[in-house]
Every structure is written in structure tokens, then in C-alpha cells.
Amino acid sequence: MTIATGQKEARRELQPGSSRLLRNIWEHRADYAYVLPAIVVMLIVIAYPIYYTIELSFFNTPPGLQLRDKNFIGLDNYTAILTSEVFWKVTWNTLIWTLGSTFISFVLGFATALALHRDFIGRGVLRAILIIPWVISAVAASYIWKWIYHSDFGIIGAVLVELGLADRPPNFIDSVGTVLPSLIVVNIWREFPFAMIMMMAGLQTVPDQLLRAAKVDGANAWQRFWHVTFPHLRNVSTVTILLLAVANFNSFIIPWIMTGGGPSNASHIWITHIYELAFGRQRWGVASAYSVLLFLILMTLGYFYVRALGGNERKDGSA
């Protein structure tokens, strides 16, 4: 055996997996050809922007220059972000916004789903009405709520003053203390129907015979819920919470339209702050670094989402 032949064989022994993979690809070449256009499109519209954003995050992009005149500054954008006061303020706002909106939307949606799971007259109509906030355009809803909250002429303030419960209309969105909770209420109003629908679908998978058996065994309503219903809903709950969390982390429309992140940055969350950095202040480099950090956080949430989905599928025996 020559040295060259020996090396080849050694390489083959070292890479049994890769040759199997290549053979596999070759055998399924028609399948790959079918998905190739989709992969190419994804590479263009997803992979390249991600790559470019990561690249840009290592550059200084002075607002007085064109983007092509950017200069490499390594990790300075990340350092600047992590040491800036605004970052921590905006991160804190984002956490309150995401956790508050997600948790309350889920609890409210779940409670409503449980209430609507029972049979009563008008259930269908009520379901339809409760879905309205979710199907309404977020932009339209934001403008409507801006007027409802209006600090001088909002309907809530007018009713409170009319009933003698307040001397002057409460300040919902022009105060640093109340603006974020006020926006969270709007977000919950828009999102809880989604949680409701998901949980209603989940409730339909709970086997009736188990509930009846538990009742025969003397379990009260709470025990039936906690020991029978809830375990069946664990996976759909996880998926719902993760989807809500990702959507809330990525929220833009409600805070941007209603307050533009103000007053005094009190309702700036990550996405609105990134938008202002990029398009208002043209700090493309810093905005990209923010986006990369946000991407990592969302990928982590995405990982748990996929895991939760995988758990579902395994339980169903479908994977």
C-alpha cells in the first residue's frame, strides 16, 4: 500500500459520517432541488441581513458620513451599549413590558378560555367579540387608545371627572411613572385573545373520561383542574407563553405610535430604541450591535420554543 492510498483510506475511515451524508444528499437530490429555491430566498432575505448586521456592529458609522465611510472599531459598540445608562433603562423597560404583557395576557387568556369552555347561551357570540382586539390593526388600535388615554380629553379621564372620582383627568401617557403600565394594558388588551384561542384549543384535547373518572373518585373542581386539566395543557401553555414573549420582545407599533418612546425615554423598549438609533440618529453601528444582542436573546427563546414543540410532538408520538 502506497502512502497516498493509505492516507485516503485513513481519511475515509475518519469521515464515515460525511460520506454517508453526501450519499444521502445525492440519493435525495430531487427533494433538495425542490427546496433549493426556498433556501436561496431565505439566504438572501434572512442570512445576508443577519450577516450584514453582525458585520456592521463592529463599525463606527458617524451620522455625518455615508455608511460606506464606516470605520472598524471592534467591540467598541458593544462596550458603549453595555456601559450606557440608557441601555439599562431601556432593558429594564423591555423586561417589564415583556414579562408584564406576557404573564398577564396569558393568565387572562387562560381564564377566559376556561370560562368559555363551558357551554352557555351566547358563548359563540362572546368568543367572536373577545377576538376583536386581536384582529384589529395594531396601528388603528394604538391611535384609538391614544385618544382614550389622552391626558386632556381622554374618555377615561372625562368619565372619572364626571363621576367625581378625580379632579382632573389622570395622566396616563404623559408621565414617566404611568406611561409603561398604560401601554402594557393596551398590549394585553390586544394579545390576550391570542392566549385565549390557544388555550381553548388546548382544552379541547383534555380527555373527558379522565375528568369524569376524577369526579367519580371525589376530586373537586380545583383538584380536577390542577391534576387533570393543567398537566394536559402544560405544553400548549409553554408554547403560548414563548410565542407571546417573542412577540412582546419584538413589539414596536404600540409604544412607537402612542408615545414614540417618551416621555423622557420612559416607554422606550429595545425595538423602539434600536429604530430611533438607526433611523432617527443614524447610528447604524450601535443599532446593529443592539440588534445582535436582541437576536441572541430571541434565539435563546426560540430554542426553548423548538424544544417545547419537540416535547409536544414526542408526546403525540408524531416524531
Binding site: K146, H150, S151, D152, F153, P169, N171, I173, D174, M258, T259, G260, G262, P263
Partner: peptide
Amino acid sequence: DKSVPVSALT
């Protein structure tokens, strides 16, 4: 003085 619209900030 609170003499201007409270909504001035938005």
C-alpha cells in the same frame, strides 16, 4: 403652573 395641555409631551 400646569397651565398648558398635559398631553404636550405626546
